[in-house]
Each structure stands twice: as C-alpha cells, then as structure tokens.
Amino acid sequence: MSSCERIEAVLSAYHDDELDVAESTEVEHHLAGCAECRRALDDIRRLVQTASALDGRDAPPQLLTRVLAASLNRPEPPRLRLWARRYLPLSLAGAAAAAVVIAVIVVRTSPTVEQPSVTPAGGSAARVVSASGGGSASGGGSASGIAISAGTARGAKVLRAAAAADVKILAGARREFARAEQHYQRAVRQLRRIIAQDLHRWPLARRRAYLRAVGPMDSTVASSQKLASLAPADPAAQEMLFRAYREQLRFMQDAILGGAR
C-alpha cells in the first residue's frame, strides 16, 4: 500500500476528527507534501459541507390526513388474527377432547345404551363431537352440546386474553398449547380407565383387536410427543402431535362404544 493509499483510507476519519493525535500528525505531515491528498481532503470537505446544506423537504399536506385515517380506523391487527388462526383450534380441540370423554361416559352409563336399538344414535353423537365439535342427538348428544358451548366460551376467553396481551403472544400461545395438551392427556387417561374397567366384559375377538392395536397407537403418540418437545415452537410438530392425540382418542372411543355393544 503506497503512503497515499494509506492516508486516503483514513481521510474521512481525519476530516471527522476521529483520529488520535499521532495519527492526525502523520496525516498532516503527509498532506504538507502531497497535493493529490490535499485535493482529496478538499473534495471530502466540500462534499460534506454541501450535503449538510441540503434542504429538508416537507411531506405533501394531504399525507397527514391519510396517515391518520389509516392509523385510527385500522382493523384487528394481523398478528392477532394469525395467532387466533394458529392456536385457537388447539384450545377448542382441547375442550373437544374433554367432550369426547363426557359423551362416552353419558352413552356408556345411560340406561338406554344397554338396549341394542338405541346404541347407534348415542355412538354417532359421540363421534360427531370428536370429529367436528358439533352435534345433537338423543342421549349423549345433549351432553356433547354442553361440552361444546363450554369450548366456545373458552375460545372467546382465549381471544380476549390474546387481545389484552399483545406483547406476550408467544408465551401465551405456548401456555395455550400446553393447556390443550393437558386436556388431551386427561381425556386419554379417563378413557383408558373406562377401558380397564370394561375390558373383561368385551367379546374375546374385540379384546384381542384392541390389545393388538393399542401398543402401536401409544408409540405413535410417544414419538410425536418427543418430536414436539424437540421443536417446541414448530407448529408442524404440534400439529402432528395433536393429530396423534385425536387418532388415539377416536380409537379408544370406538373401542369403548363397540365394546359396549
């Protein structure tokens, strides 16, 4: 690097008074004997002087009106809608998981269920609950109706909470996810208890079919749980876990209702 190149590299810093004394002295020594570098410094000086003298420009007068209109009448912030789209189904699904248990219990303990002619109606009502979260029929239908309206009220509560805690959105979402998961796990435990009580009364073929399928079903859930814990913020992993839970619930529910038949 020639001495001119070395000096040129620090000319801006020299101009802006950012060099220490030794460096400045070196630059000044060089400038005293080098017209080329003096010219470069002079150019920098005039560039900076001219730039600092550039006028600011006012925004067009109509801009304020447009800004105020756009800012004061804005719809729901998009982040909230995104949040609700992604996580509200989880908490509703959690409530629906609880509804499955209620429906199953009602169908199972209702006196009419013991009679073969009524069982299909109750069974389908419980299935509707687990599939879409809606349904009305005799027997179990009314119980599922209660569970679903509880789920909707819960959804409204979740939405209000989300609006209030805009900054804590992610933390809130994680909590909501954990809560939905608890619903599922509780539902699974309850159904498992029911099955443990009823299993010895099931016909041998149905009992064998259930015991064959329950192991793989549980390990699918376990591996989905592991995946979701490795990637706690990944919606795809959460989605997969909840799908595994839903399948597990549907499987147990079918086993119970089929076993009661």
């Binding site: 420009r57 006012d58 925004a59 801009l63 304020l64 800004v67 756009a70 800012s71």
Partner: peptide, 27 residues
Amino acid sequence: YQRRVFSLVLRMVGSSEAEELAQDVFV
C-alpha cells in the same frame, strides 16, 4: 417528524414512491 421522515424517504427511494412509503412509515 414529517420533514425528517419525508426527506429521508425521498432521498432513499426517489420522488415517485416517496409519498406512499412515507405514509407506510407513519402508519
């Protein structure tokens, strides 16, 4: 801040887009 914002946007992107971007900035 309108003068500082508009001048900056104007110099960064040019006059044809400045007004729209300045509105975006304030929103």
